[in-house]
C-alpha cells in the first residue's frame, strides 16, 4: 500500500457505464484511490503491472483475456495484490475457476456500494470476501469433496485380471453378455460369473457403472477419426 490510509484500486470491466460509475463512486471514498481502469483482461494485466494496485476489482466475462485468465496472470505477477471478482455470474463454474485462479473474493454486482467498500477493507486486512449466495455454493462443493474423500478409493484397473479387463472393455462398447461370450469364445454363463467378479472388485452395482468406469480409466479406445465404414 502507498500509505497507511490509501488503498490503490484498479477496476477492470468491459461495461463502460458500470465501470465509470464504479470509478466515480470509489473516487469519492476517503482512503481509496482508483489508479486505473481497464476495459478487458489484457489491459487489466498491463495496468496492474504498471500501477501495482492493492486491490483489483475484476469482471469475469470480458473480451480478449477474460477475468479468470487475467486474475491468474496478475496473481503470478503480483502475489500481494488482492483480487475481487465482481460479476453478474452466479455460475458455480465461474466461482470455482476464480478461486483456482487465485481470487481473494467473489462478489455479485447486485451488491450495495457500502458492502463493496467494507469488503475492500476486509480484504486488505487479509480476510476473504464472498457473496452469501456464492459462499453457500462453495461450502456445498467442499461438502461433496469431503464426502468423496470418505468413500473407499476406486480400485485401479490393475486389480482386474486380463480376462476381466477384456470383458469390461467389450461391455463398455455396449455388447450384451451373449455378444461378449461369442467375441471371447466363452459361454454366456462364464461371462456372467466374470461380470459378477468385476462388479465386486470395483464396488459397483450395475454394468452401466462399470462401463462408465472403463471409459473414465481409458480402457476403451475411441475409434480413430480417419476410419470410415467401407461399403460391402
Amino acid at each position: 500500500m502507498t500509505s497507511m490510509t490509501t488503498i490503490k484500486v484498479l477496476v477492470v470491466d468491459d461495461h463502460t457505464l458500470f465501470r465509470k460509475g464504479l470509478v466515480s463512486l470509489l473516487g469519492q471514498q476517503k482512503g481509496m484511490e482508483v489508479v486505473g481502469e481497464a476495459k478487458d483482461g489484457d489491459e487489466g494485466v498491463r495496468l496492474a503491472r504498471q500501477h501495482r494496485p492493492d486491490v483489483v476489482l475484476m469482471d469475469v466475462k470480458m473480451p480478449h483475456l477474460n477475468g479468470i485468465q487475467a486474475a491468474q496472470a496478475i496473481r503470478e505477477l503480483l502475489p500481494e495484490t488482492r483480487i475481487i471478482m465482481l460479476t453478474v455470474s452466479d455460475e458455480d463454474g465461474d466461482l470455482f475457476a476464480a478461486v483456482k485462479a487465485g481470487a481473494n473474493g467473489y462478489l455479485l454486482k447486485s451488491v450495495e456500494p457500502e458492502q463493496l467498500i467494507k469488503s475492500i477493507h476486509l480484504l486488505i486486512k487479509g480476510e476473504p470476501v464472498i457473496s452469501h449466495a456464492m459462499a453457500s455454493k462453495l461450502l456445498g462443493e467442499f461438502r461433496a469433496m469431503a464426502k468423496k474423500a470418505e468413500q473407499p478409493p476406486e480400485p485401479a484397473p490393475a486389480a482386474l485380471t486380463d480376462r476381466e479387463t477384456d470383458i469390461l472393455q467389450l461391455l463398455a462398447k455396449g455388447q450384451s453378455n451373449k455378444e461378449i461370450g461369442s467375441s471371447l469364445d466363452i459361454s454366456e454363463h462364464t461371462v456372467k460369473i466374470h461380470l459378477k467378479n468385476i462388479l465386486r472388485k470395483l464396488h459397483m452395482n450395475s454394468r452401466v457403472q462399470a462401463a462408465v468406469y472403463a471409459h473414465q480409466h481409458g480402457l476403451v479406445q475411441a475409434p480413430s477419426p480417419g476410419r470410415t465404414r467401407e461399403s460391402a
Partner: peptide, 16 residues
Amino acid sequence: TTRSLFGTGLMSLLEQ
C-alpha cells in the same frame, strides 16, 4: 434504479 453498484454509480456520474 436500485441501490446496487450500477444504480449508485450511475447516480454518482449524473450528479457531476
